[in-house]
Write a protein that binds this DNA or RNA. Structure first.
Lengths: 186, 186
DNA sequence: CCGTATATGTCAACATGGCTGACATAAATT
DNA sequence: AATTTATGTCAGCCATGTTGACATATACGG
């Protein structure tokens, strides 16, 4: 197999000169390093769950749904749509399967009986925890060799990467750091 | 709209008790915080590029291809398949479009003329830089308020999140921190 | 030189998970 | 009573992943 040669083609067509792979990024230079690290890190991060999900006949879409329902019991369908930013038709497909197979149950809202509050069953929670365990192991390993301030820096970085305009309810609780859970309960 | 109520349904069907949203994560507890922050951070990170790509009639798949070709000129098709971990048929669809529309050019390998070395054109590089600029702005903003060691911690964290078994050539250069580019050139 | 392996390309079919548009129902709201 | 809202559903389209089969050109080993 050929190597990455970092050269322009000899006598080839008009091509751009290569971006520096060895140069240090100055101020305002694209952060190629972080961009690519995010790609690879996220790929492997979700890959952990993907393998397990396959044995259940589920995909990533099912994971996201059952994860957030498990973590935020009583989430409504509308809330879930805000979090996932997909259409109700897309959600419906995977949600129906999770309901049919007993990973999630619905309950009509108390104050508004049109709403369908969603709850994970024990079965659903077991799946979520199995997947979270895999991902947590990877995270714990990645945090292990960071200094004491390293973990906080990573959390701070990730929070600052997230859009602040129009956060949904789940995102609000996450960004507020759990300090005021009751503040979002009207 | 209903609020996330963090309660079990009254008299509802058998559901699991809620995971703690307000409790601090102890050792060995799932890192719900990082798991969810990664989800939201990556969603918004790739969202930046998605909007621009739409105006070009391209998707994320096109971005990944032209990005890595631009960054690692002379990448072969096989190299690219290793990096993206997709099938050659999937790659072929988007690569063909990028070739047809003049974002990428091919050149037969020097030592092995079966190979198709890939290079971004000026047009391709302009697109990649436009997208990288957006993502870099987000990254720079997220790194801004971290202490001096914060940036290093983030890089170290992301590197440690990546699988080390069987890294492709691109990943090798990234993980080696650019110190020995020529080491990978046989 | 010949046979086999490799690098790439292509066709066809299929799965997942996004999307839009249209429409139905029940319950809340005015 | 009329309208709005929360949810569900049907039908079809698109992007992007998959597998399997097969073609071509080139490299390589005997």
């Amino acid at each position: 197999m050929a190597d990455i040669n970092f050269k322009d083609p000899v006598g080839g067509p008009a091509v751009a000169t290569r971006p520096s792979a060895a140069r240090q990024a100055g101020p305002d230079e694209p952060r190629w390093d972080i961009i690519e690290l995010l790609f690879f890190a996220y790929r492997d991060f979700v890959g952990d769950a993907d393998h397990v999900l396959e044995t259940f006949g589920f995909g990533r879409a099912h994971h996201r749904v059952v994860h957030f329902v498990c973590r935020y019991p009583g989430l409504t369908v509308a809330d879930l749509l805000d979090v996932l930013r997909i259409t109700k038709q897309s959600l419906s497909r995977v949600l129906k399967q999770l309901l049919d197979e007993g990973y999630i149950v619905q309950k009509a809202g108390d104050s508004d009986r049109r709403q369908r509050l969603l709850f994970a069953t024990a079965k659903g929670e077991a799946l979520v925890e199995k997947l979270a365990r895999l991902q947590t192991d990877r995270i714990a390993h990645a945090l292990r060799d960071l200094g004491p301030g390293g973990g906080e820096a990573v959390g701070k970085f990730l929070r600052a990467m997230i859009d602040r305009d129009d956060p949904d309810k789940v995102l609000q609780t996450i960004l507020q750091g759990d300090a005021s859970v009751k503040d979002i309960a009207t």
